[in-house]
Amino acid sequence: MSRKPFVRPVPATTWYMRNGRYLRYMAREVSSLFIGLYMAGLAMGLMRLAQGPDAWNAYLTALSSPLALVFHVLAFAFATYHATTWFNATPKAMRIRWGDGYVPGPTVVRAHYALWGLVSLVILVLVGVI
């Protein structure tokens, strides 16, 4: 047999370095790590709140440390990236009939942003910031 197909190996750990498209995807996936850590921090806060005013105050102090601030800025950036990439991807999965076609993709994306804004507004009103 004269055939000898050549298989080009795909690097198992660095495959996403091959192009920008994969890197952006990895960034989206990694963003969930920051969101997870942020949630863990939040859960810890609730725990401290249940433990009494001292614990709660210590928690608040810890939150204002430079390290915590840096983390929150990062987490916020990643959360925003996560939300934007997912919102932009939603029209692919959500096809809503509109006459003889579908609601246009950009409209679906905009609706997500609008909903996000609305929910944020309600929360801000509820917690009394506005």
Binding site: R21, Y22, Y25, E29, A89, K92, A93
Partner: peptide, 19 residues
């Protein structure tokens, strides 16, 4: 599929397999 979306970006016929 982990929804990288690369398939749809390179599709020359706008099939959108990711979708």
């Amino acid at each position: 599929c982990s929804f990288v979306g690369a398939c749809s970006e390179v599709c020359p016929k706008a099939v959108d397999p990711a979708g």
